[in-house]
């Protein structure tokens, strides 16, 4: 097994075992979406109108939720020392960890999204658009989040700092993700343009995220 496959398999195993964060992320996502109608009232047309935005916001918060333990748990038990020493490029190890994290927390959100979408009265075209935008956009959230997780790796209360660091960086993803998702809900808004930009953001974060996170890890671990 190559080092990267080993990391991928290990991280996914840990996520789905007892104490892992895989299911808690989905639960958090569902709870956040459920809270919105309590606050804005049970007005179905309104909920339908703001539905994609709510789901995107909830997905953003949920994908950040489990990220703060991504590197700090490896730091606390000494695994990160061995990872830093290793021959495998740190950037690729970080990428593998990001992929494992997305597969165990991002992907379940996308599976759950149409179900919670029903609660917000989204119809079939809106659901489909939403799922496609989330599928394309949530990897960007994870990979941007990696940077924050790496910066906060040695800190005791990294969770809050992580959110403060990462949330502003995710603004472009949120803008274009919601814009594309809204295309099927709000009149004749264009889908192609924001969706293409969303794809570009994801591809860019796929490269920038691991490099920046690896650089941050090297600095933090000095």
């Amino acid at each position: 097994m190559t080092p990267l496959a080993a990391i991928l398999v290990r991280d996914m195993r840990i996520a789905i075992r007892v104490g892992g964060g895989a299911l808690i992320g989905v639960l958090f996502f569902v709870v956040v979406v459920t809270l919105i109608p309590f606050a804005v009232g049970p007005d179905l047309p309104l909920l339908k109108r703001i539905g994609p935005a709510i789901l995107w916001l909830a997905a953003l918060l949920a994908s950040l939720l489990a990220l703060d333990r991504l590197f700090s748990s490896d730091h606390e038990d000494g695994s990160l020392d061995l990872i830093l020493m290793s021959r495998a490029p740190l950037e690729l190890v970080v990428l593998a960890k990001g992929v494992a994290h997305w597969l165990t927390t991002g992907l379940p959100l996308i599976v759950a999204a149409p179900l919670v979408g029903l609660l917000l009265n989204l119809d079939a075209p809106a659901e489909l658009t939403l799922v496609v935008t989330l599928l394309v956009g949530t990897p960007a959230l994870t990979f941007i989040g990696l940077i924050g997780a790496a910066i906060a790796v040695t800190l005791q209360r990294g969770g809050l700092l992580l959110a403060v660091i990462v949330l502003p960086l995710t603004v472009p993803v949120l803008i274009f993700g919601v814009a594309a998702a809204n295309a099927a809900v709000v009149g004749p808004a264009p889908f192609g343009t924001p969706f293409t930009i969303l794809c570009a953001l994801t591809l860019a974060s796929l490269v920038v995220g691991p490099f920046a996170a690896a650089a941050a890890l090297r600095q933090e671990m000095e």
Binding site: A5, R10, V18, G19, G78, D81, L82, I83, M85
Partner: peptide, 24 residues
């Protein structure tokens, strides 16, 4: 390098932990 910490994950089995490090 055998540091102070054992670099083990409690939720993985003994063999899984070792197999991971051997593979990595």
């Amino acid at each position: 390098y055998l540091g102070h910490q054992d670099a083990l994950k409690p939720s993985l089995s003994v063999a899984e932990n070792l197999r991971f490090w051997a593979g990595f």
